[in-house]
Design a protein around this nucleic acid. Structure first.
Lengths: 160, 160
DNA sequence: ACTAAACACGACTAAATCAGTGGGGATTCT
DNA sequence: AGAATCCCCACTGATTTAGTCGTGTTTAGT
C-alpha cells in the first residue's frame, strides 16, 4: 500500500498554492523548482486538478495556477482522488453487493468475508484523508496531538 | 493505494486456516484449490507467514500449515505486515523525526507538513487493520454496523 | 507584430514492481 | 521405495509508474 508520487506531489503542490492563496496565479515553474518536482510531470497533475475544479488556471505570461476554493474547503482526499482516482483500488469494492463475487470462497452465502475488511479500510482511509484540509497543512500544528504507540491494539478495541 | 494480491491472498488463506483451527495441518494444495490461488505463489506467502511466527508448518505426507495462535489473536494487520512489509510505504516515515527531510520544502522549521498526513494515515490504517482479527472474519457478522455515507466530513470533524 | 512566458495535451519510454512459474531440494508417512 | 508435502531461490512476462518530449495555444509586454 504505497502512496504514489502523484499523490505526494499533488498534495505538496496544493499546499504551496494554499500558502499563497489570494496572491493571484502562481506559475508552475516556481512550484516545481521549490518542491523539486519535474515540471512536465507536475503539469499533468495540475491538469487533472483543474478538470476536477480544484484549481483555476490562467494562461499567458503572467499566468499560473491558483486554488479554486479556500484552503479550508479542500481536503487531502479531494486532491488524491483527482490525481489518482479511487482512494482504495480493490476491484470488487466497485461492484454492487449482489454482483458476481470477487473471490469464490463459497462459504458465506451472502457476501465475501474478506471483502468487508477492504470496505472498512476504504471507509477509514477516506474519512482520514477527507478530514485533513490544505489549511490544516499550512499551519504548523501537529495532526497527531497524542501519539498512540503501536502495540495498544487491545486498548483501542476496548475504547471502540 | 491499491491492495496487492499478496495481502488479499494472504488474508484469504489465513481465514481458511482459521476456519479449520484445531484440525491439524492443512495442505496448501487444498487452500490453493478452494481459494483459486496459484499454489506456487501461495507457498511464497506462507513461507513469510511462517517466518513471522503466525503459522506452523509440518512437512511430509500429511503435512501442511496451521495457525500458530488462536484466530482471535491474529489480526489482518499482522498478516499484511508479514507478507508485504510496512503497511504504508512512504520512505520518509521510516526515518527519524530529526533525520534528513524527505521533501525539501524548507518552510516549516521543524518537520515537513505533508509528512504528518502520511503519518496520520499510517496510524489510522494500522489501527483499522489491527482491529480486525481472523476470528472476526470467520463469523458472518458485518464489520460495518452503521454505514456512514461519504459526505459527512463536517460531522466527523465535529465528532473528532 | 513580435517574443517570451506560461498553460494544454497527447505520445513515447525507461525503470520498477507485481504476479506468477519453474526447478531442484528436504522431510515425513505409508 | 515412493508419494505428498514443505523449502527456497531464480527467472520471466505483464503492468504500472514516473517521468520526458514535442507541438501546440494563449497572453502580456515591448
Amino acid at each position: 500500500m504505497r502512496i504514489s508520487a502523484k499523490s505526494e506531489y499533488g498534495v505538496r503542490a496544493m499546499v504551496r498554492l494554499a500558502r499563497q492563496f489570494g496572491d493571484g496565479p502562481i506559475p508552475l515553474s516556481q512550484v516545481a523548482a521549490r518542491e523539486k518536482i519535474s515540471l512536465d510531470f507536475l503539469e499533468q497533475l495540475m491538469l487533472l486538478l483543474r478538470r476536477q475544479g480544484l484549481v483555476h488556471s490562467a494562461r499567458g505570461i503572467h499566468g499560473g495556477y491558483l486554488l479554486a476554493l479556500p484552503p479550508s474547503t479542500i481536503s487531502v482526499g479531494d486532491v488524491m482522488r483527482a490525481v489518482e482516482g479511487p482512494m482504495v483500488n480493490m476491484p470488487c469494492l466497485d461492484r454492487g453487493e449482489g454482483d458476481d463475487p470477487c473471490c469464490t470462497m463459497g462459504i458465506h452465502v451472502a457476501g465475501c468475508a474478506t471483502r468487508d475488511v477492504w470496505a472498512l479500510l476504504q471507509e477509514k482511509i477516506t474519512q482520514t484523508l477527507d478530514g485533513v484540509t490544505l489549511a490544516d497543512l499550512c499551519q504548523g500544528q501537529p495532526l497527531l496531538p497524542l501519539h498512540q504507540p503501536a502495540l495498544l491494539r487491545e486498548l483501542s478495541l476496548l475504547a471502540q
